[in-house]
Design a protein around this nucleic acid. Sequence first.
DNA 1: CTCTTTATAGTCGTCATGACTATTAAAGGG
DNA 2: CCCTTTAATAGTCATGACGACTATAAAGAG
Lengths: 264, 264
Amino acid sequence: MRDHDGSGHDTDGRGYDKYAFEPFAVTVDLAVLTLRAGALHVLLVERGQEPYAGRWALPGGFLLPEESAEEAARRELAEETGLADVTGLHLEQLRTYSEPGRDPRMRVVSVAFAALVPDPHPDPVRGDPRPAPLEPHGGGDAAQARWTPYDAARGLAFDHDRIVADARTRVGAKLEYTCLATAFCPPEFTLGELQQVYETVWGTALDRPNFRRKVLAAPGFVEPVPGAARLTSGRGKPAAVYRAGPATALHPPLLRSPREGRPA
Amino acid sequence: MRDHDGSGHDTDGRGYDKYAFEPFAVTVDLAVLTLRAGALHVLLVERGQEPYAGRWALPGGFLLPEESAEEAARRELAEETGLADVTGLHLEQLRTYSEPGRDPRMRVVSVAFAALVPDPHPDPVRGDPRPAPLEPHGGGDAAQARWTPYDAARGLAFDHDRIVADARTRVGAKLEYTCLATAFCPPEFTLGELQQVYETVWGTALDRPNFRRKVLAAPGFVEPVPGAARLTSGRGKPAAVYRAGPATALHPPLLRSPREGRPA
DNA sequence: CTCTTTATAGTCGTCATGACTATTAAAGGG
DNA sequence: CCCTTTAATAGTCATGACGACTATAAAGAG
């Protein structure tokens, strides 16, 4: 029953017998998502080698012997984005892709993650001196890295199209019942910026007063930064500034309503 | 950057160079859940070998060279439960556990699944001749298998305590916004049986008329079996019989309310 | 100052929800 | 056969969340 090697060995499925299991290569793949200019973007790297040379792919790489998939993902994230502090970024394990043949060379099992990062290129706004913009750079090899609009991220190497689609589906769903949206925002943000996260990921327009009412009604979602206000687009009334609250789940949830929300 | 072997090779993280990656053993672990006698149960197997000999663990095993993790999980499920038809059972990929040291012998990366099965031992009810009860059996080796109440499934081998806890958390959450609950039910069921699924997994008592109203208000969740009715516990009015509808998501969701639901 | 733009406050009707009561249809005991 | 018990189902009602909408406030542009 646990004897899977077909050689008559019985190792209880976990025995020392090295012939009882097949070795696999294990990688992590990262769907690094951000919001730029009102559109969802994915960080892609150009492959320099076969297979799929010249094609775009998700950043990722092999697990090191002494690290977990989460640690490998965070290491790759730091390497690929050049971001100094990846400790605070939200990493979400999506699922593991293990179909034979997903890598044409060998058997590769890949643990996919979604990483949510604030806009690395915010438009400079008066009264909001944010840290210097972050530009992804290719690694030591020839590969280059680039932020790509979600809709243009098609024809990727391996099964990365599917991973990117799964990432968006998962993130869109978690926006409803978790506080995940703040992971796309800088440490301090306005409710308008938070609403743009929802509108961009969901692809729907939301009523601003209603959105505001629901966000403020969810305990621990956001908390006001006392005395702070910021002009978000140069004109209009300055918006109050909030930061992420202590909650992780959203009660009540911010549901994608079948009624509200026309196409954005 | 993608050069992870520390040997100066550069393989773009996926090169043919066999020294560029570390081989891992890849397994699947299954949290097979069911509802028996009003309590959540997990299928456990007793380990016959070191490490953790004599300890209880989740069923599982190594991936074969030509199968995906999902296929391996379904194969293991069939083997461990003796269930003839596992094609219809709901398999849910939970996450992948990859911490170094989670297996004391070697580096094992495990893809965990939750499997939801109808009660294999339903109380015989008049007018409901269900298929013969299903009893799990150990494999060809010495391991035995047993349904264990969720609360008694502690002290398991490896990190399986955590996997079991994650399975319950995931299932409980998905009951809210998917039609997952029907996966715990036989092909035809009453609304009382469906309500017991929610009450058991959530650990809360629900108001029967309100539950009924919400279930019937969700399009495609359940559909009536015309003319069928069944006495569910020998006494009282016979209940109408339903089967799972075509929907997979629940609109509106059946939220665990902070108000409703006293401890069951 | 006036217009535009954006944030924020508030209103109102509708619908979902939780709490509760009433009715119906069966079994079982006398 | 009548009455109690049990469970399913129908219905009621007040509260609250929600979507749609209007009004006001605070900024810049001209």
